[in-house]
Amino acid sequence: MTTADLFLQQAINGLSLGAMYSLLALGFTLVYGIMELINFSHFNVFMVGSFVAMVTLQMFGLSGQDTILTGLPLVGVMLVAFLASMTLCGAIGVAIERFLLRPLRAVKGPAAMITTIGVSYVLFNAVLLSIGADSKNFPNPLPPLTFAIGGAVLRLREILIWIISLVLMGGLTYFVQFTRLGKAMRATAQDPEAARMMGVEVDRVVMTAFFVGSALAGASGMIFGLYYNLSKVDIGFAAGLRAFTAAVLGGIGNVPGAMVGGVLIGLIEALSGQVVGTAWTDVIIFGILVLVLVFKPVGLMGRVAPNKS
């Protein structure tokens, strides 16, 4: 491979990673936009999502990389796995909100954030205790179709990841922009007090944000499995930190910003891994987080700052 091909290949990889981070970043951004809360449980909801997808695929008799499906069975199995992981993660998100965070909504200070850290730990250890710390094979039933772009290779996997991400992000954009609940969500993000007085049921909006954000984390977790062909109990931390950086980079609270930020972080990760070495990826990503927060806290796409005194 020539250098140019290498970079093209990393750009393709970066786009897939970026799609994954975008979906994960949306959950951070939706919740932060509405409640000004960094939801640390999101890190491990993502991890749980990837295992739910893995178990679902295994239930179809798929185990490693050897069983290949095509046509309708492939589409069906993939769809079921995505839906299962999204639904279950959405339900976990709703439960966290309803039973653990809602009682704390009026409490000032870091109580809610500390709770999400605790929940993250519980999720992590629940998975750790039940299936262990070693990495697990993620079933990949995709046919090994590849397309050559110059010297770089575009696999079917990438196309699938891109399509699914585009569909989910498109759906979310439609939801936020045009539906009643989506408008209520944006109104709440701007000013919860005013939204409540205008008849918006804030409880429902918050719950929706948690459901949608967590469901997207579930999809993102499945993409992780498809991309790396594995899943592991500790994948939530690094992916979560990167997705959060993506949300901040795009302007936290800003839905298109999270999508753009995610793609940028994915590209940066893939390309910096090529140039500097993967050992330093976290340092680079984190450096970006600090630089953005210090010099441009509203992010690249800006944010309609909530009007809170």
């Binding site: 653990l100 850290i117 605790g118 730990y121 519980v122 992590f124 250890n125 629940a126 205790l129």
Partner: peptide
């Protein structure tokens, strides 16, 4: 179960 208990204590 130590870390599980940590999480539960926080919550």
């Amino acid at each position: 179960w130590t870390q599980m208990l940590f999480g539960l204590i926080l919550v």
